[in-house]
Nucleic acid binder design. Structure first.
Lengths: 341, 341
DNA sequence: AATCAAACCCAAACCGCTTTGGATGCCGCA
DNA sequence: TGCGGCATCCAAAGCGGTTTGGGTTTGATT
């Protein structure tokens, strides 16, 4: 059932039917209702391909996912972000397009998306320092929103980010208040912007209390269980091991816990741990009582909001660049306590 | 730069240019090369929207993800599957469309995808017993491939699955060979088809050895860390606790391990554990020496293969339903050992 | 009664490509 | 010389919507 058939059945022109369905004012309310009813009855659904060609809009948003020699973006955090963004898209009748491409194809992919007209905008994931994607997207004129920020970029751009610096600064201060002085940092990869900011929060807090930085206490790697385990194991075998550890995610935190328990220590008593908790739906940090003390910020909610921002930008390209900085909560769980004496 | 402009520049008709670019035979080789060169020079990329309207094909594949009152499909396993499928799609110039919709909208979403012509086919995730999606997709004539199988469906359909029954049967037999007799099962939700099959593998193996089933030893829940933890905790506080546990995933396995260690026991010595390992890219089961003994099957590879099967079905709808059953490997890690005496 | 603006509807162009159904020119062969 | 056949190319008709630029009525205003 297409427009022509439907309008024939109704004895109207395609023009009028189209207008009736799309809420244009120049059509009699009575006919509009007649049209609506007929459309429902024959369950007419306009062909998306035709709409797209006619309007020039793709009604779709792209997410480009490089598969990674460099860095594995396909991680659980990413999945939850996508889920959140996807909710926004379906609510607004937009399609979500995922392009999983080899690293070296990333630039081409963006150019293709633009010139072939597949999408109206994109979300940029996992920004790095001086991220080349931002000038690229500017150049080709593709609307975009960055999830995170890209230090070093001087072009204006839209972003939505968690206040990672503040979150880790607060977490560090909290541990210092508990009397801890030697604090380990099990960070994510530090070419990632968020990891740089978290480290800054950590170092700022220490410096504010006049505590010297100890490079031996600072690790940076993928946020996997095994990396967390290895980093914590190294930390705990130091001559003067830390009494507290900040970890970059739930998963690396689980590795940290394993290393702690393997040495016969008790997390929260012998070693305090604070993680960053993305509030993943299938990996809750405890239920009544959180397992980990954590800086928490829902990445799914971030996905929802970033998608909304992008749809805004697409609908309203003239408006200046939008920004949104989400604050993480500091929630107290079982993994932190006063420094042991 | 569109076809008309390009053909004008070349002094040819759009017809000829189109044919030249698409490799049709009725065009002189010399002109074809001239056209190709010009296309590259002006980097002409045909407008996808127009191609889709003209050809009637969407050149896109859909994945519908219900957001879940019922069951959270947005999990790490799902993410890896998507990544694998996405690789196949980009290699074949197909788009991947993700629809994240509320449970109750699922049926509508499939109908919409079909009648609005957004996709040429879909992948069905996480099939359940008597899954209603299979008759639905049959009814609306949408090509599809199921990742897994749906017990109880009598209609023919394409699927790609892991031999879950066999995997868990082998794992169970392996533990029995080590002298274990009381085996706990920490299964996924048992309205999911794969969970039913795993349980069958477990019960078959026990029955074959003449061991009575003990309902107290069998748990079924979401595959989260916390559920794994809780199930294992219950198991270990039984009057006669099991000496070995089969867990449904890496993540629930980590919960099982936590429960074991919390009781001061050592995994692999006091309690053997076998998990199913989906070989997730960011959650490797150890590196040189696997942490967990596991039945392993890469879900990412499954994604690649399922997508290939679907593209096949789309290209060749007449061919009968295809099936593919992947076998899981049984890999030995540190989490299993002979029954303690 | 003539005029004019709304209100309502339609025919036709258009979006950018594919594909059908010829047209044209050239060559070989009877 | 005439004709069939092949190699090349093109005009025009879709694909299924939206949108432009009018046409008719109708009713109120002068």
């Amino acid at each position: 059932m297409n427009l022509k058939e439907l309008s024939a059945k109704l004895g109207l022109s395609p023009t009028t039917v189209s207008r009736a369905l799309n809420g244009y004012p120049e059509v009699n309310e009575a006919t509009r209702e007649r049209v609506m009813a007929a459309a429902k009855r024959h369950n007419y659904r306009p062909n998306t391909r035709a709409i797209r060609l006619a309007t020039g809009r793709a009604m779709a948003v792209g997410h480009v996912i490089p598969i990674a020699t460099r860095h594995e973006i396909v991680n659980p955090v990413f999945a939850d972000f996508i889920a959140g963004a996807g909710e926004t898209y379906s609510r607004n009748d937009y399609d979500m397009l995922l392009s999983v491409v080899p690293d070296e194809m990333e630039e081409d992919t963006y150019r293709n998306l633009k010139s072939k007209g597949n999408v109206d905008g994109v979300i940029v994931h996992a920004p790095r320092m001086n991220d080349p994607r931002i000038p690229l997207l500017h150049e080709i004129g593709m609307p975009f929103v960055v999830h995170g920020r890209a230090t070093g970029t001087e072009l204006p751009y839209c972003w939505l980010d968690v206040n990672n610096r503040r979150a880790f600064q607060r977490a560090t201060e909290f541990l210092l208040d508990l009397g801890h002085v030697r604090l380990g940092l099990v960070n994510g990869l530090e070419f990632m912007d968020f990891a740089i900011r978290r480290r800054t929060g950590y170092t700022d807090a220490l410096r504010d209390r006049g505590i010297a930085l100890d490079p031996d206490l600072m690790f940076s790697s993928e946020m996997t269980e095994i990396s967390g385990y290895r980093a914590a194991k190294s930390l705990l075998t130091l001559p003067k091991p830390p009494t507290a550890i900040l970890a970059a995610s739930m998963i690396s935190g689980m590795g940290v816990r394993r290393a702690i328990e393997e040495r016969g220590l008790v997390m929260g008593r012998d070693v305090s741990v604070i993680i960053h908790d993305d509030d993943l739906s299938y990996m809750k940090n405890g239920e009544d009582l959180p397992l980990f003390t954590a800086t928490r910020s829902s990445v799914r909610e971030a996905g929802r909001l970033a998608a909304e921002m992008l749809l805004n930008v697409i609908a309203n390209p003239a408006a200046g660049p939008q920004h949104r900085l989400l604050e993480a909560e500091l929630i107290i769980g079982q993994s932190s306590g006063p420094v042991p004496r």
